[in-house]
């Protein structure tokens, strides 16, 4: 009974509610449309067409999971996934550790802090393509680091990661870390500056050492900063492409291939959209698998608290 009597009264209120703040809603309309059409719509379209045998142009001849079967039986894809795993794991841990350590050092009120900050942040101003090229040259055995050190007299010095299939991914990692840690350091530094001086004083009164204060008190307090940093690092890892193209071109052989490069090359060079879409859908899945438990913990936990 109450249910039937409610609608008229609600419908009387609804326009007012819908048009409340209408200027703000109108202004955000383009972004809402972009999000729905481009992101959600584009994703749905890609996933749908990954079940077709599309070649250069999208066609709707359904082939079921054929593209996925082919994808997971392709050596190049498996190598790409492994490489992303190694690069991602190392990059995540090392960026956080180095970034935080640098920030903590700068936070100890050293001299010329702003000069050091600029130096550490400087690589971030360079694009991945420039970074890749610079490190390709530095790591080139014939005129890079190796030849310089040999020139100093250490004749047996060998440092040639890019031409060895087993180490090339670490060559990429060096370049990635060089480029990315500066930004993380700045974010960490901002987080450290946000910690109240009184915390430090209280810790000192209790006789807790500096390192222990960082690990046990400061880092847990910087949780939001760490989450921001994690999201930034993770998005950088998953879209890793231009660094590889500029630094190694995926070589030697297939040993530094990454999933994003597989997607691009099979979509456009092999003119096999279906295969490229299947690969990009798998990339999306891996992001979702990581994201959903994290979002559940993060936002679910907040509601309970």
């Amino acid at each position: 009974m109450t249910v039937t009597s409610e609608p008229p009264s609600r419908s009387g209120k609804r326009p007012a509610k819908l048009f409340k703040n209408w200027m703000a809603k109108l202004a955000s309309l383009p972004m809402i449309l972009t999000a729905l059409v481009v992101f959600v719509g584009g994703t749905a379209w890609t996933v749908t067409y990954s079940f077709t045998g599309s070649r250069m142009l999208p066609k709707t001849d359904w082939v079921g999971f054929d593209q996925y079967e082919r994808l997971w039986s392709t050596d190049r894809w498996i190598i790409s996934i492994k490489n992303l795993g190694i690069y991602g794991g190392c990059s995540m841990i090392l960026t956080l550790v180095i970034g935080f350590s640098l920030a903590a050092c700068l936070d100890r009120k050293i001299r010329f802090e702003s000069a050091f900050r600029s130096i550490f942040l400087y690589p971030f101003a360079l694009s991945f393509v420039v970074t890749g090229l610079v490190w390709q040259w530095i790591l080139n055995p014939d005129f890079g680091l190796q030849s310089v050190v040999r020139g100093w007299g250490w004749e047996s010095f060998t440092f040639n990661p890019l031409n060895d299939p087993n180490t090339v991914i670490y060559g990429l990692l060096i370049a990635g870390l060089w480029q990315g840690t500066g930004l993380i350091m700045c974010i960490m530094l901002a987080g450290l500056r946000g910690i109240d001086e009184d915390i430090w004083k209280a810790a000192r009164v209790d006789g807790i050492g500096t390192v222990k204060t960082y690990v046990m008190i400061i880092i847990p307090m910087m949780r939001p900063v760490f989450i921001t940093a994690l999201v930034l690092i993770a998005s950088g890892i998953i879209k890793l492409y231009d660094l590889v193209v500029a630094q190694t071109g995926g070589g030697p052989g297939l040993s530094s291939e990454v999933p994003a490069k597989y997607v691009i090359e099979y979509m456009f060079r092999a003119q096999n959209l279906g295969q490229g879409f299947a690969a990009s859908t798998m990339m999306l899945c891996s992001v979702v698998i990581i994201l959903i438990p994290w979002a559940y913990l993060e936002f679910g936990g907040r509601k309970r608290g």
Binding site: R76, G253, S255, R269
Partner: peptide, 28 residues
């Protein structure tokens, strides 16, 4: 087709840069 060509090129890149045996490469 371009698709097959790229797959063959991938195999070549893998073979020439590594230690894949000739028999494995022939089978692939």
């Amino acid at each position: 087709s371009q698709d097959t060509t790229l797959q063959i090129e991938d195999l070549m890149a893998q073979f020439w840069s590594g230690d894949m045996s000739a028999a494995d490469a022939q089978a692939a």
